[in-house]
């Protein structure tokens, strides 16, 4: 029982992060390898805001999300847009460079010390017994609920709003959209904003549950196989992929070898790449575009 709870909780974190990868990839065909670092940066921003506004999580969290979204928009205009027309991988490497800069800056600004967001936000992470041999904490429930809510919201956004439709159109064929007289860069920037916003949600939840320190960025790198296994262009694929990867990881830890925990997502990824390289829900054409 606890096993499955652990899988679902871990999957919810992965799904939140994978959503960011997918949003960004759909928008700008870029794999954002700084996603984990941006998630960490958002968490540190939350930490700083929380030091100014202690115990007011209702103010801290929206402020953090807003700030993170603005950072996302800024990144698109400053670093990604100038890379248009250049080899795709160059843009990916720009995100890698960005991640390295963030790692350095975080240490410079916030020191390498471990911080606890939960204390600052005055959140008590209580344990709830779901069944004999199966407990879950308040924040873990929050993580699952938020992940599901976010995916529902994104699905609605892409189906019913004009901007959502435009973003789908831009994902499919940006030049055609430009032909219709729409500045797709603005749409891409919005997508980046949304993506970094979701990263901030994941970051705040994850670091409140666990700890805030420089190594949490690693979880971003581990979530990236999730996005690929699900299909880089497919939001719907991210949910089952997150469950699959989390299942593989938790199984590896509990039944095979704990040291496999970092490797497990990538083993799943390799298997997926060999069997179904376009992902669970992607289409083979996706491969041609990369």
């Amino acid at each position: 029982m606890q096993f499955w709870i652990n899988v679902v909780v871990l999957a919810s974190t992965y799904a939140l992060l994978a959503a960011g990868y997918v949003l960004i990839y759909r928008a700008s065909r870029v794999l954002n390898l700084a996603h984990g670092e941006l998630m960490m940066l958002a968490a540190y921003l939350a930490f700083s805001i929380a030091t100014v506004l202690p115990k007011q999580s209702l103010a801290v969290i929206p402020l953090t999300l807003l700030l993170a979204a603005l950072i996302g928009v800024g990144i698109y205009y400053l670093f990604i847009r100038p890379m248009a027309g250049r080899p795709l991988f160059s843009a990916v490497l720009v995100t890698v460079a960005m991640g390295i800069v963030i790692q350095g800056l975080v240490v410079l600004v916030w020191t390498p010390r471990v911080q606890y967001l939960a204390v600052l936000l005055d959140i008590v992470n209580q344990s709830h017994q779901l069944a004999p041999g199966g407990a879950i904490s308040t924040l873990d429930i929050a993580s699952i609920v938020v992940a599901l809510a976010l995916f529902a919201a994104l699905a609605a956004f892409f189906r019913y709003t004009r901007i959502g439709l435009l973003m789908r159109a831009a994902a499919e064929n940006p030049l055609l959209l430009a032909q219709r007289g729409i500045d797709f860069h603005r749409l891409y920037a919005i997508a980046w904003g949304l993506a970094i916003g979701t990263a901030a949600v994941a970051g705040v939840l994850y670091t409140t549950t666990n700890r805030l320190e420089g190594t949490v960025a690693l979880i971003g790198l581990k979530a990236f196989p999730v996005a690929l296994v699900g299909g880089l262009g497919s939001l719907a694929g991210a949910l089952p992929a997150a469950l699959l990867v989390a299942l593989a990881e938790v199984t590896a830890i509990q039944y095979v070898d704990p040291l496999l925990s970092n490797v497990a997502p990538f083993v799943v990824l390799l298997a997926a790449l060999l069997l179904r390289p376009w992902g669970l829900f992607g289409t083979p054409e996706e491969l041609e575009r990369v």
Binding site: L10, L218, I219, P258
Partner: peptide, 8 residues
């Protein structure tokens, strides 16, 4: 490098 200790 573990950050999530729940499985352990």
């Amino acid at each position: 490098t573990a950050t999530d200790f729940t499985p352990f």
